[in-house]
Structure formats: structure tokens, C-alpha cells
Amino acid sequence: MSDGAKLLLIAFSMIFTENYVLVQFIAICPFLGVSKNFDSCIGMSGAVIFVMTLASAVTWTIYNFLLEPFGLTYLQTIVFILVIAALVQFVEIVLKKYIKPLYKALGIYLPLITTNCAVLAVTILNIDESYNFIESCVDGATAGIGFGLALILFCGVRKALERAKPPKCFEGLPITLVAAALTSMTFMGFAGIADNLFH
């Protein structure tokens, strides 16, 4: 498979067939927490795409030039958490100083992302799949886009849920979880497409 085709395959599978939220059930917490209104969905998605791409690049470098030569690959989880947390803090400081509008747009979602398990997942899966640097970055960015897609789609579902009247015992979170399950089932329709599309 050519390089371009492989990148396309990564992008397609991260957004559709292997969507983090709706297929792999990673980052359910922000998915349920932030999907209430459209504006915060956009803010959160933007921040996640940004941080995931950066984190993929940085952790790939650290893993391949620091952990592997010293035989410390078993430390990857703890090192990655440390690095991601510091990275997000650093990015926040830089944005606050130099790109004020972007800082305001991302707002509270930037620091929140340190605790988003999708960010840790993408960095660890990059290593597991033994991607090279470019592939890791593309993987990070498209996983973020997939997260954003799921968030925005589900935001629409929740808007419709607000008008629906479920039985009393299902009101609130229960019916939201049922709706999330149904939304995730729609993504099963993409299964198998990626492998046949890009080989």
C-alpha cells in the first residue's frame, strides 16, 4: 500500500469505522457531558483536535528517542500522562500570550482535555500500531475529528430528545444513554468499508 493510501486509510478508519466514541467507547465522559449545546461542542472538538495532534507528535518523539533506547517502554502510560498534562498547560500559556482569540474560543475546554482519556488512548494506540511520525500525527488529528463528528451528531440527537417525552423512569441520563447506544449502532454501518476501500 502506498503512503498516501495508508494515511487515507488511517483518516477514514479514525473518523468512521474506528470512531473513538461511537465504536471504541473511549471518551464517553466528555461525549455525554459537553454534547448539551452546540457552541460548547464546537469549542470542545476544536480543542481536542488541536491537543490530540500535538500530543501524538510529542509522545511519538519521546517514545522513540527516550523510552525505547533505555528499554523503559513499560513506563509509557505514566510518562505520556505527565507529558500531556504539561503540554496542555504550556499550550494554554502560549495561547494566552500570543493568540488571545483562540484562547478565548477554546476557553475552559483546553484544561479539561488533560483528563480526556481519548488523548491518552490515541498516543498509546499510535505506539501499538507502530506508526511512523507522520502517520501518528494524522492519526491524532483524524481521531480528534472523529470525536468532534460524534459530539456534533449526538448534540443534534439530544436536541430532539429535549422535545421527546420518555417514561418518567427514563428521563434525563438513562434516555441519553439509550440514545447514545442507538447513535453508536448507526456507525456499525461503516464496518468493513475501510479495508475494501483502500487496498
Binding site: 527516550l66 533505555f70 523503559l72 513506563l75 507529558v83 504539561a86 504550556f90 500559556i93
Partner: peptide
């Protein structure tokens, strides 16, 4: 010792950077 040094080092670098 290597593990402690590397992890401590990474932490230190991050802290100094911040």
C-alpha cells in the same frame, strides 16, 4: 535507577519548561 532518572528527568524538564 534508570527508570527513576528518566521519569524524574522528564518531570523536571516539563516543570522547568512551565
Amino acid at each position: 535507577l534508570v527508570a527513576v532518572l528518566v521519569l524524574g528527568g522528564v518531570g523536571l524538564v516539563c516543570a522547568v519548561l512551565l
